[in-house]
């Protein structure tokens, strides 16, 4: 450092500093800010914000709450049957959904499928992912009637949306060398799939299956609300009969069951990886 020793008491030159903005162009920045403000003002103004209605609603909410306390497990046998049905729905829909996901994932993998098949596979996944399970459940309830069958079909679709998507992405990442080696050895299409692709995607597949079982258990409690069987149906019946303390007890049991299954599946998945 060969600079001259500066006097710390000397007044330094005046200079300004401003934090550089995320969007350097001021016109663009301000118009974006304006756009966001206008959007929120407009969106909020479209809301039906009725104070009188809320004032009426608050005592109603208080009534619901006081009706719900203390939670009362009046008919434990109903809750038990509901939970068992939910469990069965989750098991069967996971088997069905994951079983269907594997071929769909192969269809939707860019590196393995011919273009038209690829587009079909992607289309199935997009449709399955776009709809909330409750919407799918309503449609199935209309088509096949109330009960667990609608629940199983709904959650199978739900499983495809997630498992097939993740699996297809995994297939697209496989090590291509192994596939070429088998093709060079003269193996046919399905043999190649079984020996070169399946072993590479198996660990991911197992993790996804456990995760999806967990999600299905959770979702099957919800689709019951629209008539697709399980504990959700029990909950909805209690709610419709203004049996709020029973409904609250069921809600607490659902929460406990979900936390339990989350803990178990988390443990298993940690063990696997």
């Amino acid at each position: 450092m060969s600079e001259p020793v500066s006097n710390p008491l000397a007044p330094p030159a005046r200079r300004t500093w401003r934090k550089p903005s995320l969007i350097p162009n001021p016109a663009l920045r301000w118009s974006l800010i304006l756009l966001v403000i206008v959007y929120f003002v407009w969106a909020l103004s479209t809301l039906p914000f009725d104070w009188n209605r809320i004032q009426e609603g608050l005592p109603r909410a208080a009534r619901i709450f006081s009706g719900a306390f203390p939670p009362d497990l009046k008919r434990p046998e109903l809750v038990f049957t509901g939970l068992m049905e939910t469990l069965r729905i989750a098991i069967l829909s996971t088997i069905l959904g994951v079983g269907l996901s594997i071929p769909i994932a192969f269809m939707a993998a860019r590196n393995l499928a011919p273009k038209p098949v690829y587009l079909l596979g992607r289309g199935i996944i997009i449709v399955a992912r776009s709809f909330h399970p409750i919407i799918v459940a309503i449609l199935f309830v209309k088509a096949v009637g109330f009960g667990p069958l609608a629940g199983i079909l709904t959650l199978a679709i739900y499983s495809i949306g997630f498992v097939a998507k993740m699996l297809a992405e995994r297939i697209e990442e496989i090590n291509w060398g192994q596939v070429e080696a088998l093709r060079a050895a003269g193996a046919g299409y399905f043999i190649t799939l079984i020996y070169a692709v399946l072993p590479q995607i198996m660990p991911r597949q197992i993790g996804l299956t456990i995760y999806q079982f967990d999600s299905n258990l959770r979702a099957s409690a919800v689709v019951g609300i629209v008539g697709a069987g399980g504990i959700g149906a029990t909950l909805m019946n209690a709610f419709r009969r203004y049996d709020y303390d029973f409904a609250f007890a069921i809600t607490l049991i659902i929460i406990a069951a979900i936390l339990l299954s989350e803990a178990i599946s988390g443990r298993i998945r940690r063990k696997l990886w």
Binding site: S6, P12, A13, R14, W17
Partner: peptide
């Protein structure tokens, strides 16, 4: 301003 000046200095 004196902090900014000091910082540049």
């Amino acid at each position: 301003q004196e902090d900014i000046d000091r910082a540049f200095h």
